[in-house]
Amino acid sequence: MEKFLQYRNLSYYYQTKESKIHALDNVNFFVEKKNFASIVGPSGCGKTTMLSLTAGLLEPTSGEILLEGKKIEKNDSRIGYMFQRDHLFEWRSIWQNIILGLELQKKHKDEKALSFADELLKKYDLYNFKNKKPRQLSGGMRQRVALIRTLVLNPSLLLLDEPFSALDFQTRLKVCDDVYEIIKSEEKTALLVTHDISEALSMSDQIIILSSRPATVKKEIKIDFEGSTPLKKREDKNFGKYFESIWRNLS
């Protein structure tokens, strides 16, 4: 089994004026290449902290995170981060939003990168909106644009921090399917944070359940449902059983 992304004895403390906040305590687990892993845990337990550490935006207090056997660095280009809200820049067109990352890395004149961006837009039905402004798009489309903005930089690991929680339920199921399809067809490894158990179950190959703060891994579950999309996976006969088991572990 290849350990694509590995957490080893990861601990993290926030320093504040009043006290030290122990956010993560000795976290250990790994994710295989091209797998979809979800982290669930009570709110405030340290999920976002884990992603920030993984993205290299914070440095571990102790322990380490390895990606393909190498320690994660600050500004690691192997990693793409997708936030809770899409954070599209209203003053930029969809196309300009998508190539933002390329601009920042001075690759916006790179023909290959640009044609890849073009290709992604076409493939995921956004090409006709290329020159539109974000506010002209629906919530689901905006989230797709945000994902493509991340994919354009061709990361091998995608981090998603509750990317659907700002959407209404109907849109959410649809966007879940869309995002899942995109991530699978681009063959990315993904680490999703959510507090929605069904969402985690319908998308993941592996679920990591965290305890309340300081978070440590309480339980790990491998999942293998019938069905090729999250929506179909929700109909698997074992879905309810898994749901209950996770729910019991969370409370």
């Binding site: 993205a55 935006l57 500004n75 280009s77 990693i79 793409g80 981060y81 936030f83 809770q84 809200r85 954070h87 820049f89 933002l100 990352g101 920042l104 890395q105 930089l153």
Partner: peptide, 18 residues
């Protein structure tokens, strides 16, 4: 300015001038 937007820029390796 939304601090998550700043974080997004940082996650795409933007420097302060950018």
């Amino acid at each position: 300015c939304d601090s998550d937007k700043v974080l997004l820029m940082k996650s795409m390796h933007a420097n302060k001038l950018q």
